[in-house]
Amino acid sequence: MSAEAAEEPGEAVTTRGTIGVELGRRPLFYAVLAPFWAWLLVRWAYDWVVEPGTNVTAREPFFPTEPFVAAGETLRGVAAGAPAPVGGVLDWLAGGFDFVAFGLEALPQLAAGAWVTVVLTVVSILAGLVLAVPLSVARVYGTRAVRYPALAVTELVRGTPLLAQLFVLYFGLGLTKYVREVPGVGVGVLPDTAVVVGLIGFTVNSAAYQSEYIRSALLSVESGQLTAGRAIGLSKVAAIRHVVLPQGLRFAIPGWSNELIYLIKYSSLASFITVRELFFRAEAIGNETYLFVEVYSVAALFYLALVVSASAFMSYVESRVAIPGLGTTGR
């Protein structure tokens, strides 16, 4: 709850909420996450390097599904002859094997979708940061002429749904027809047209929210710090750059964890503008097989794995850049 606790009284900073997972003392998480990432990285490498030509839906899983299908059938056969309570349990177990077999079948497509999800998330948060720093500095230290436009942009973005913003870019402005002309789009593993439009949308959206995190972080840097910087002869820009930002950006790290998690989850909205990310792939499999429970469960596990990984990664970053007396513990 560091984000809430850090708020000054009377400062209603819009946060997007942490998931509240605390890592570090949980070997089980790593026991699950490490193989997940190992598999995912190998899968991506294999699909691009070894078999780049294969259509996503035609990709074969690494793990054989037959043993699970066979085990399920055997169990069901046994269950038919067993007395009622035992038979029920066996049937349930057989369902478990079916689920694993189906999940394995779906993995290659979901891996392809997860790649797009990761690209959307990582690129948007970084590009959003590049825009957010000047936006927030403008709002805290800028003159009226830059403060109000910066305020207007952030408020407009934060006051409307992300989905509406994606619709404006994709349907309203028809950005696809401009993006299509850009050389390199959609070549090889580079993002295709729809992904680029999604990236633009998420970047703008994230920039607005990040600027809000950074703004409140900058305000929480004591004013004496800027004064001391000016007192040794630094210009205002240099003092902000060398004294205020290094501290403020550290204060903003809990906000970024929220933002990263938010982007992972909300990148799923890109499926509405035909971006073939994780949710899009899951939905497509569901529409084809009608196994909605199974495919959405697997998709949910994928998202959880990504979110928990992001959370762990950000804790690591926070501990790496921690300075005694600065940051969440210091407040």
Binding site: I261, Y266, A300, Y303
Partner: peptide, 16 residues
């Protein structure tokens, strides 16, 4: 349950 709900996209939750 809280972690599950906070770690899953609202789209997936609505699908369920």
């Amino acid at each position: 349950t809280g972690v599950l709900l906070r770690g899953t996209p609202i789209l997936v939750i609505l699908a369920f």
